[in-house]
Every structure is written in C-alpha cells, then in structure tokens.
Amino acid sequence: MWRNSAVRLAAGCLSLPLLICLLALLAGRNGHVVNLDSVLATPSASHWLGCDALGRDVLDRLAEGVRLSLAISLSVVALGAALGIGIGMLAGWYGGWIDALLMRLADIVLSFPGILLAIALAAMLGPGVENLLLALVAVGWVGFARLSRVQVMSLRHIAWIEALRAVGLGFPAIAMRHLLPNIAAPLLVEASFGVAAVMIGEAGLSFLGIGVQAPDASLGTMIREGTRLMLTSPLLVVWPGLLLFMLVMAINLLGDALRDHLDVRY
C-alpha cells in the first residue's frame, strides 16, 4: 500500500496533527492554563501560535483538540461497529421477525439526515461527552448493521457454513470464528470512512455548542470560539479547522486506498 501516492499524502496529512499531540504530551503541557496577561497574544517564542481569549496557549489546545477528536471518533466507530455488526449478523442469520424488527429500526434511523438526528439526540440528552458519544453511536451503527446483514445472508446457505451448523456449532461461535473473518473487508472500509464522518460530526456538534463543553478543547469548540473573534484574531479559527481538515482528508484517502487494496465494491 505504501507505493500508493495517496497513502503517502495521507501519512503526510496525519503527521502534523499527531506530531502536535506528541510534542504536547512529551512536554507535559495542557491547554487549560489561563493566563490573563497573554489574552489574544500574538505568536511568540513561548506561545508558538499565540493565545486565545482567555490567554490559553493555542498550540496546547490544538493538541488537546486533536486528541479528543481522535479519541471520540475512534470510540464511536468502535462502539457503533460492535453494535451494528452484532445487530446485522443477528438479523442476517435468523431472518424472520428478528430481521424485520431490526431492519425497521435501521430504516427509521436512516429516515433522518445523520447530522440532524445526532443534533436532535445530543440536544435532548443534554451536554457532555457521554451523551455526545451516545448520539453519534445511535446514528453510526446502521451502516455496519446493513452491511453485515447482507453479507451474512449470502454466506448463510453456503455449504461449509451449513456443515458447521450440522456439527452443532452455535451461532455465537460461527459468527465470531467463521462469519466475521469473511465479512471483515467491507466492514473495515466502512469503519475507515466512518472515522472521518464521525470526526466531522463530533466537531459539528461541538461547534453548535451541543457537544464537548468548555473548558475542554475539541477542534469543533475551538472553531466555535474562533468564529466569535474572527474580525480581530482570524488565526484562532484557521488552525483548528485546518487540522480537522487534514485529519479528515487523510482518513478519507486511507479509506479509498483500503477499498482499492481490499477490492471492495459497494
């Protein structure tokens, strides 16, 4: 995969945000130190990218934002994938009313624009990272469920799977040891695009004020705070968005490369 120029571009795009995180971790700095002497300070040797409206170091907050965005999107995709794949495999394997019920549930979720449903759920559940995760997972599981359902349905009647049933293997064992490895490729591709989508979703919700709350820094909250000061300190909105953009683009590129590499078509 490394020969692919898109993958190298993706690695390049990923390296800057990750480097910022790593440096902040190594230096043991955090983005919460309020320093009223350096409110909206311009870039200097001690604050490479200047300070925000509360005198907090922008670079440190960016590092925290990248970390939070990555942590949230990876956990949402992991939770959504676990839930969705479980539901999809159950529906595909058993069929009948279980399938009908679960897929109607998926249809309802798909009847909303994803971001709108996430906004509505997060707004009703109230602020906080747990509720943000909940809202994003509630939207994110559906893609995995539909994908794994279709795959399991086509595998179910293949002779060697039937043979496993004939020797008395139960559904959990067949699912974990035999079905999952065979349907993993498209799910991996879905997951990689999912990380990019969730990252934008999380930042969007935080931008709207219903995701990550102050004083925590997420790239979305930083863009939100930055737009208010756009006329005086335009760079405050430029940096977090640029990092988010680079992360999302890198993940999309990796998703494309992964799809080509695994030869997945859907």
Partner: peptide, 22 residues
C-alpha cells in the same frame, strides 16, 4: 472532489467570510 468531501462546512463558511467579506 477529495477536498470538497473532507472540508467541514462549519470551517469552510468562516474561511469564506474571512476571505470575501473581511
């Protein structure tokens, strides 16, 4: 097309404002 799908609209908006309005 890659840039277009990757750019978040809540950042593209402020960037356009910065360039064309401010």
């Amino acid at each position: 097309s890659l840039l277009g799908v990757s750019i978040p609209n809540f950042w593209l908006g402020p960037m356009l404002i910065l360039l064309f309005s401010v």
